[in-house]
């Protein structure tokens, strides 16, 4: 049985997934959830595939009404989540009754939150991804009254004995700091910056309000390119740290144009790109040098943590009968 969410207050929310990985070869940015860890976690907490469409909520408050019983999870930046007026935990599956309003308010410590729904959301795809592309104008636009169709409904899950939270899934949540440390590996054009490259590691940079999904602009002491030879356009990775002007450092994120002609000083690690996705204008960041081997190991450790979460969630849901016949039918308050 399908259900739906009716958007009441869209804020800056979009329907997205992990990205358009076949895009770059055609000159389209990969896009997709900027905090990939939080997005994957939200989908896992609702027993979806990690790449399923979900809602990315940036900075502003968001509200939607469920037209059927749903199971949701909200991850990402610290915020206040209420369902039908009750305050509910983040980073846990949450039952929503038909007619109740889901409200996300006061995103503070970070910038982006992720709301997934068990059974996922139906969204149009381009090259195998629903991620919006602002350049070519692709993507599902959310406005007041937009109806998002979900493929499954879930009868409410209730803790029968005490009014305790049902799930304690024990995920180590990411730290949300107003002064995060960002790991980078040496970029392919590091040498072009000579000794000034060291400024990257000794300066505290401030996130500019002109930052977005294409890139973060950071104010502070800037490394300077020592050579002036012309650079032919070439593919630049997500995470590339460039110095395109004398005003700001530019760190490219998932909405970046695929090719550019600026030298790449450093590249932010996959793990730290999630951290940067949560940096708010006015926050400060410092950079720390790491190696590709260490960065890979860190990324894999985070993925293993998500795999453990997946195992726990699957076990709990199997016991509750979400997606199978219940082994603990007492926990299912069938229509109460």
């Amino acid at each position: 049985m399908s259900g739906s969410l009716i958007i009441q207050q869209p804020g800056h929310a979009v329907v997205t997934d992990l990205g358009r990985f076949r895009g770059p070869r055609y000159g389209l940015p990969v896009n997709g959830a900027l905090d990939q860890f939080s997005a994957r976690a939200a989908n896992i907490l609702t027993a979806n595939a990690e790449n399923d469409p979900l809602i990315e909520i940036t900075a502003l408050d968001f509200r939607a009404r469920a037209t059927a019983d749903l199971l949701i999870a909200v991850t990402g930046a610290p915020l206040t989540l209420t369902v039908g007026g009750r305050e509910c935990p983040q980073w846990e599956p949450v039952s929503v009754r038909a007619g109740e309003t889901i409200a996300v308010r006061g995103i503070t410590g970070g910038l982006r939150a992720y709301l997934s729904v068990h059974g996922s959301i139906t969204a149009p795809e381009l090259l195998g991804s629903c991620a919006p592309d602002t350049v070519i104008g692709f993507g599902l636009k959310l406005a007041e009254g937009t109806e998002l169709i979900t493929s499954k409904t879930v009868p409410p899950i209730k803790q029968p004995y005490f009014d305790l939270p049902l799930f304690r899934l024990g995920l180590t949540k990411p730290d949300f700091s107003t002064h995060p440390v960002i790991d980078v590996t040496d970029g392919p054009d590091l040498e072009e910056f000579g000794d000034t490259a060291e400024l990257l590691f000794t300066t505290r940079y401030t996130v500019s309000p002109r930052s977005n999904h294409i890139g973060l602009r950071l104010g502070g002491a800037l490394p300077e390119r020592q050579s002036s030879s012309e650079v032919l356009s070439r593919g630049v990775p997500v995470g590339a740290v460039e110095v395109p002007s004398r005003e700001e450092l530019l760190v490219l994120h998932r909405g970046r144009g695929v090719t550019a002609g600026y030298p790449v000083l450093a590249v932010v690690t996959s793990r730290s790109l999630n951290v940067l996705a949560q940096a708010r204008p006015g926050h400060t960041v410092t950079f720390r040098r790491t190696t590709v081997a260490e960065a890979t190991a860190e990324h894999r450790a985070a993925m293993r943590e998500l795999e453990r979460l997946r195992t726990t969630v699957n076990t709990v849901f199997a016991l509750l009968g979400t997606g199978a016949s219940p082994r603990w039918p007492g926990l299912m308050a069938a229509n109460n």
Binding site: P24, V30, L232, S233, R234, G235, V258, T259, T296
Partner: peptide, 18 residues
């Protein structure tokens, strides 16, 4: 391996480090 982006004299190969 997600794909390769060739330009003039260079190629960016993107992959999933997991």
């Amino acid at each position: 391996v997600h794909g390769a982006v060739p330009t003039y004299d260079s190629l960016l190969v993107e992959f999933d480090p997991h």
